[in-house]
Amino acid sequence: MLLKREATIVGAIVASDSKDGKDVGDLIGLPQPLGVRAYTDADEALALKPDLVVMSIASYMDDMYEPLRRCIFAGSNVISLSEELLYSWHTDSKRTAELDTFAKEQGVRVLCTGHQDGYWISLVSVLMGTAFSIDAVHGRCSWNVDDFGAELAHDQQVGTTPEEFAAWSGAASNRPPTFGRTSLHALAAMAGLEIKDSTTTTRADVAATPVFCRALDREIPTGQVIGFTDIDEVTTTQGITLHLEMTGKVYAVGETDSNHWEVRGEPTVRIHSDDLATHYTTCGTLLNRIPQLLAAGPGYLTIDQLPQLRHQKTLG
């Protein structure tokens, strides 16, 4: 997608030693080499002085802080798909403030975006803007683990037993914030709401019949976990409750991604989207945010600080 928007790719950072030194074009399946190499040494790649780093390596601040810090001090802007960094002022205010300060000092920008930006925040905030009064906002969304690879499949506890899942979900203090919580926090910011409290409950999704997981390249037997559903609820001082049930699991044949939202008030309004290509909308949203990122002032940015999401013909 970056190449089709005429971006000049100068390098790539990879985790696997087997990919070190290989041509990026070969790694991403282009018909011919790109003439650009992949590096396992991030500092060696950042020495190329890229204007922008597109980062899709992890979901949570614990894994993202150091890579972001290194990019910032290398003088590069960053756009990421990290779910927590979409709006981390409430989940990790200390390190968010540090990244914001570093970015401002270095004159660069950090932004996290993705499918949530468009379908869980931007669209919903516009829908909220059509209501005269609002009591609650309820969302129900699902995405296919197989579209995002082995790392996310492990994060979604695919292939564990219900007992193992219960032990994992019971260790609440060790679990990072859910994707839904940070999305609702971003939605609250977009709607001008002040957060009062946030709660999360989680249920395992279990295979009713054997399901093949492409991400792990193995069959998940009946009775084992194929993912889970987080139910997040945010209360606000304005009395509006934000609620999101977000399911990430391995799909059975015929299941598709969905996005259903209801703004309950006067009037009650709804949007329903089925058969979404979430992995494409994730990357498409990132590309369409790049010109807005580059035009913004330095610092850690959130989407409520940017213009409305729209299609962009070029990267700017």
Rank of each mutant, 00 (worst) to 15 (best):
Q224W: 07
L30A: 11
H115V: 15
V263K: 01
G139A: 11
T237S: 10
E105A: 07
T302Q: 10
Q106V: 01
T199S: 11
A207G: 09
W143K: 03
T178I: 03
I57N: 10
Q157L: 12
I303A: 09
F228H: 12
Q305G: 12
I134K: 00
L306A: 00
Q224K: 15
Q312S: 12
K22Q: 12
D217V: 00
A295L: 04
G139Y: 02
A42W: 05
A58Q: 01
Q224M: 13
H279D: 11
R181A: 11
L242Y: 01
N259H: 06
Q305E: 13
D135L: 06
L48I: 01
R37H: 08
Q156S: 10
D275Q: 11
I13S: 04
I134G: 01
Q224L: 12
L30R: 14
P67Q: 06
H311D: 03
F148Q: 10
P298E: 06
L30W: 12
I57K: 09
M190R: 13
S93G: 12
F212G: 01
R264Q: 10
G192H: 07
I121A: 06
V108K: 08
H260V: 14
E151V: 05
V53H: 05
L27N: 10
Q308H: 10
P307V: 03
A38P: 01
M61R: 14
H115K: 06
G297N: 15
E83A: 06
V225Y: 05
I28Y: 01
V145R: 10
M55E: 12
D205L: 13
A172D: 02
T178S: 15
Q312R: 15
Q157K: 14
G316F: 09
I79H: 08
I303H: 04
I226A: 05
